[in-house]
């Protein structure tokens, strides 16, 4: 299967509803370029954080080449996330930030902790570079860490 060729062979019904919706939507594309354009549209919908610069390094997602920062807030045990993507060419990070911002919104820490790292392959395909995979996985890991703190 090529890059952006579809989701991994794995049940996605266990994903939180909004994430499952995105994964299912992207899996419908059989044309690689159409799928890429759909992900670019998601990246273009990305809304950065309201937090003022300079950002505290404690919010920096480690190992992410796109210079991503993440913040979390909870209300009665339900979590909300915001991201900043400092690299203007970090489109994959923007797309994943938008997906996480919406897909994890209102979930509990236990629900967030159960989201598998394989989510990035469901969205972007299997053939991401090692650095890109780790950067995106670390965005999800950061959400888990922030919500479990």
């Amino acid at each position: 299967m090529g890059q952006f060729g579809g989701r991994a062979d794995r049940e996605v019904s266990s994903l939180p509803p909004k994430l499952a919706e995105v994964v299912d939507m992207l899996a419908m594309f059989t044309d690689r370029n159409e799928k890429i354009q759909a992900i670019i549209s998601i990246a273009e919908s990305f809304q950065g954080t309201r937090n003022p610069k300079p950002y505290d390094e404690s919010h920096r997602v480690p190992g992410c080449e796109s210079e991503v920062y993440a913040w979390a807030e909870s209300e009665e045990g339900r979590w909300h996330f915001e991201f900043a993507v400092e690299n203007p060419q970090g489109l994959s990070a923007m797309a994943f930030g938008a997906i996480l911002q919406d897909g994890l919104d209102g979930l509990t820490k236990n629900e967030i902790s159960e989201v598998p790292d394989e989510l990035i392959y469901d969205i972007f395909g299997r053939e991401l570079s090692m650095g890109k995979s780790m950067g995106l996985i670390n965005m999800l890991q950061m959400c888990k860490r922030l919500s479990s703190a």
Binding site: Q3, A43, Q89, A95, K132
Partner: peptide, 19 residues
């Protein structure tokens, strides 16, 4: 590119992508 979305978001006219 490092980011596989970048070429498809807009590239120099006539440029091809090598992934």
């Amino acid at each position: 590119n490092e980011d596989p979305l970048v070429y498809h978001s807009g590239h120099i006219p006539g440029a091809i992508e090598v992934d």
